[in-house]
Structures are given as C-alpha cells and as structure tokens.
Design a protein around this nucleic acid. Structure first.
Length: 284
DNA sequence: ACAAATACCTGTAAGC
DNA sequence: TGCTTACAGGTATTTG
C-alpha cells in the first residue's frame, strides 16, 4: 500500500536560537556605541511589560547601546547608563535597521528607536506576540531560563533530563530546561541524533544522550552559519531584511510526505503537545 | 514539583 | 472568484 502523499504542513520560520544569534551578530556589527535619541511606540502590546509607552521610551531614550548578548531566544542589548533592553521576537517579530526616517515604515511597525547618527532601529511584528522591555542589569525576568543550548555540556544534559517523564521532544523545547530550541530545531536535532521524540526524556540511554548532545551543537551551529531558517511567508529575516538559508538543509521539518534524506521513506507528521512533530519512522 | 492544556494573534492557504 | 475557516507556535497562565 502506497503511503498517502499529503501537502507538507504549512510552516513558518520562527525565530529560535540561530535566528536570534544572527540578529545579535548583525546588531553588534552595526550599532555598537550608538546613542538612543528618541523612542516612538505605536503598538502598545509590544511594550506590555511597562505600565505605559512613555515609561518604556523614557527608560531607553538617552542611553547608549554598548553590548549585544543572547540568552536562549532572548536578545539582550546592554545599555549605558546601566540597564538592559530585552527583546523577544516570539512568532513574527523582526528587528529592522533603516538608514533614516525617510525609509517607508513597514506595516506592523510597532516601535521605532531613533539613533543619534540618524538611523532607526524598528520593531516589526504582525502577530504582536513579541515584546521589548527595559530592565535592570541582572535581568530578573529571565531568572527561570535554562542553560543556553549552545553552552550545555553532556553531563549537564544528562542531569537535566534525568527522571523526567516528559517526552524528549517537549523537554528539548522547554526553555526552563534548555534555552533556545523551538519546534523547528527540536525536530531537526532529534532526527540527526536518531532519537524518537516521543520517548520519555528520563528513559534515554547514555549513548542516546551523547548523540543528542552532539546533534544540538551540530544542528544549531550549522544553522547559525547559514544565518537561520526562512520558510514560506518568510517571517524571519535579518536586520537588513535578508532571509537565512538553513531551510534548504532541513531533513524533516515541514517535509511531511517527502522522502527522508537518510532512508528515502516518507517523513511523517504527528501532533505532540499541540505542536507538529516531523519524524522518520525508521531513522529516529 | 511536575505535567498538560489553553489563551494570545494575524497572514496564509485550503476548501467550498 | 470570493468567502469562511483552520492552522502555524513561544510563553504566560491556568488547571490537573
């Protein structure tokens, strides 16, 4: 019996660790040392952690952008005088650099940050899940965030997964355990490691955790080199509006019914924790 | 303590 | 052709 070929599930390209890291590097290369001269907020949901748009603007204006860090999917812009601008792109957020105020505003531009050299840093976000907020240097809002996926060691991973009954697909995407992996890269990592996503995390054998640890570094590292993944409606673009290219190397994500690169059998899609999970029956 | 379900939101495309 | 509707998912919150 031939497998039923269905259209691949509609997929977006959501900002996960590689996409946020690409934006971080671009920011560091283009904005180090600039002064924020003014801030305009038109989308109140984007600054919802602040009581008013004015309180967000006042916290950011007059400060200099002196450092650019990343924790998981959170972007941290280090400010002087001492403070931190935290940015999370969530589903559809983009940071875009404009040469000046005359460049037409993209639809769904919610925050415009004027820089003292005339350029503008703009936050664009159709689905309005993303957010920006200014906080203290210790960033207490991120206290629950787990170890960054690019920094986790194999012994740490072993300890973090021990005893957990959650499926490994879910545990990998849990930001309190490991920070930076979302729905796209968790599937690519599991396929690369040859680990079934529905296995309980705590049941993985040491050799499987070893393969998983290797796959986390290999997949995320290669995706960073490719400047992230952009798919379909191209939700993810970098600071200059350009797409990444790692989608060309996706083995399973968004490829339901297409041949597995390893064995040629059709990629399957199931729903795990209300999310699409793409996998190969024989290769995981 | 941990796990699972739900709300939030809009562009896209499938289906009629 | 045009309308309706289902779907995509990260995180905070709620419920179990």
């Amino acid at each position: 019996m031939r497998p039923i070929l269905r259209r691949p599930g509609r997929s977006l390209a959501l900002p996960e660790l590689p996409e946020v890291e690409t934006v971080r590097r671009d920011l560091a290369a283009t904005l180090a040392g600039v002064l924020v001269s003014a801030v305009s907020v038109t989308g109140l949901r984007s600054t919802r952690r602040h009581p008013t748009a004015a309180s967000f603007s006042a916290a950011l204006a007059g400060r200099r952008l002196v450092g650019f860090e990343r924790r998981g999917k959170y972007l941290l812009v280090i400010l002087e005088p001492a403070a931190v601008l935290v940015v999370h792109l969530r589903m559809s957020g983009q940071l875009r650099l404009a040469a000046g105020p005359d460049v037409p505003l993209a639809k769904h531009s919610h925050v415009v940050i004027d820089l003292d050299d005339g350029r503008q840093l703009r936050f664009v976000d159709p689905r309005t899940f993303g957010e920006l907020f200014v906080t203290t240097p210790d960033v207490p809002e991120l206290a629950q965030l787990g170890v960054d996926a690019l920094a986790v060691t194999q012994p740490e991973l072993t300890r973090l997964l021990a005893g957990r009954r959650a499926r490994i697909k879910v545990a990998l995407s849990d930001q309190r355990i490991i920070a930076g992996i979302g729905n796209i890269y968790s599937d690519e990592i599991l396929w690369t490691a040859g680990v079934r996503g529905t296995r309980p995390a705590g049941a993985l054998r040491p050799v499987e955790i070893g393969r998983l640890h290797g796959a986390i570094g290999a997949v995320l590292g290669a995706a960073v080199e490719s400047r992230g993944s952009s798919l379909r409606d191209q939700q993810y673009v970098d600071l200059g509006g350009l797409t990444g290219s790692y989608q060309e190397r996706h083995a399973v994500y968004g490829r339901e019914g297409l041949p597995c690169p390893r064995c040629g059998r059709p990629i399957r899609r199931i729903v795990v924790a209300q999310r699409s999970h793409f996998w190969c029956r024989c290769c995981r």
